[in-house]
């Protein structure tokens, strides 16, 4: 399972990076969100225990690892806020340059 998880994380990263490299603003934001998903998947798979029951004190049987889950919970929230902020920034940029094509955003040069 580790190999498959690793390959999936790698594939998600590749897709996310590829999307980030698009000229289309929306696609590059989607790329960022896919990267966040990939990281969450990675975090999930680092759990020390292979559980069959949820991490409740009341549940019986082998519990899944609560720690990475708490980390992912935080990560989801932060990445949501961050992505929304990036989206707003990209929107401002495209409004300023009157384009949604990142290749036409070239103000850094001048």
């Amino acid at each position: 399972m580790e190999l498959l998880t690793a390959v999936s994380v790698g594939l998600l990263f590749a897709i996310g990076v590829f999307q980030m490299l698009r000229r289309n603003v929306i696609r590059s934001v989607i790329g960022l969100m896919i990267l966040a998903n990939a990281v969450n998947l990675f975090l999930l798979s680092t759990g020390a225990y292979d559980g069959v029951a949820a991490a409740y004190t009341t549940s019986s049987g082998a519990r899944s690892d609560a720690l990475p889950q708490a980390l992912i919970l935080t990560a989801i929230v932060i990445s949501m806020g961050g992505t929304a902020f990036v989206l707003a920034m990209l929107y401002i940029i495209s409004a300023r340059y009157h384009t949604a094509d990142l290749d036409e955003v070239n103000g850094l040069k001048n």
Binding site: L3, T5, F13
Partner: peptide, 24 residues
């Protein structure tokens, strides 16, 4: 570029997963 990143991340993930402690 994307493929290289993916490959590297796969390797990192695999090495992290294979060597992670099984006791938290």
């Amino acid at each position: 570029v994307a493929g290289a990143i993916g490959l590297v991340v796969t390797l990192i993930t695999l090495s992290a997963l294979l060597s992670r402690p099984r006791e938290s």
